[in-house]
Simulated assay, not measured.
Amino acid sequence: MPGPKDLDPSSSPRALLGAELRHARERKGLSQADLGEPLFVSGSFIGQLEAGTRRMHVELAVQLDEILGTNGFFTRNCTALARSRYPDHFAEAAEAEAVATAIREYAQLLIPGLLQTSAYAEAVFRAYKPTAPDTEIAELVTARLQRACLLDDPTTPLLWAILDEAVLRRPVGGGPVMSEALDHVAELARGHRVIVQVLPFAAGAHAALTGPLKLMDFEDAPSLSFVEGPDMGKLLDDPATVKRHTLTFNLLQASAHSPQDSLALIESVAQDYGHGEEHP
């Protein structure tokens, strides 16, 4: 029987690679736990690979080819998929985001990437990389905007964003850029495509003072959380950690303005920026 054909890395690559892993495992008559044992990973981790919610690293792909007798298939395709358009610390999270059924995100300082406009994203990347050539900045902006294409589906994924009030008050790119950016967020909220809340300064101390947080749910795999800092990020699947981060998000929801009041505030601040107020 011929082996599976190589995947086109441009078309839902991780989901396709995961499906091939499931087929190859089942042909061998192995359970997820059986396959995980010689790899020193859990059956749950194998399930996440098959569901496309976790990235398959090259070292693991080599072992899978040996165990499953797939003649280098996973090694070849995994090597191709490793060439991500995203920074190394965020690539796995971006790929998981693309197959999530629900995304809940607390943004501490910036409008979340999925909700950014081109001008806002350009201002952010230019601040990160002040000496980078324009072509590099343009590529980063394009990659960020392409991530937002998952919102083209009218219902999936559910996106629930909690924005710290600092996100609204920091004039990234200046007044016109902020006015456009906040109008874009408000438009998505008015169109019932996303749920947005604002966590006001008046809330004082809250459950996520240490940094931003992203939670992702999937149809056929356990939930994940993602935490990040300067040039670093970590995708977490430990159930106790994800449970704790879920509680953190729930506490933020309780402290934030309602979606209706949040929309009114976002629109008001956008209008102030539009009238030339740099610090509304």
Rank of each mutant, 00 (worst) to 15 (best):
F73C: 09
G69P: 14
E92K: 15
G113T: 03
G72A: 09
E95P: 13
G113N: 02
L68D: 00
A96S: 15
H89G: 00
A107S: 09
T70V: 03
F74P: 00
R76V: 02
T75P: 01
V58R: 14
D88Q: 10
R104C: 06
L64R: 07
T101W: 06
E95S: 14
Q108H: 10
H89D: 04
R76P: 09
D88M: 08
A91T: 00
E92R: 15
A91K: 00
L109A: 15
F74Q: 00
T79R: 15
Y106T: 08
A100D: 06
S84V: 03
Q108V: 07
T70H: 05
T117H: 08
T101F: 12
A107E: 10
D65P: 12
E66V: 09
L109Q: 12
A91L: 02
A96W: 02
E95M: 11
L60P: 04
S84T: 04
Y86N: 08
A98M: 05
I67F: 07
G69W: 12
S84K: 05
A93K: 08
L109D: 05
L115F: 13
G72F: 08
D88A: 14
L115T: 14
F74H: 01
T117Y: 11
F90H: 11
P112A: 01
A80I: 13
M56Y: 10
A93D: 03
L68T: 00
P112H: 05
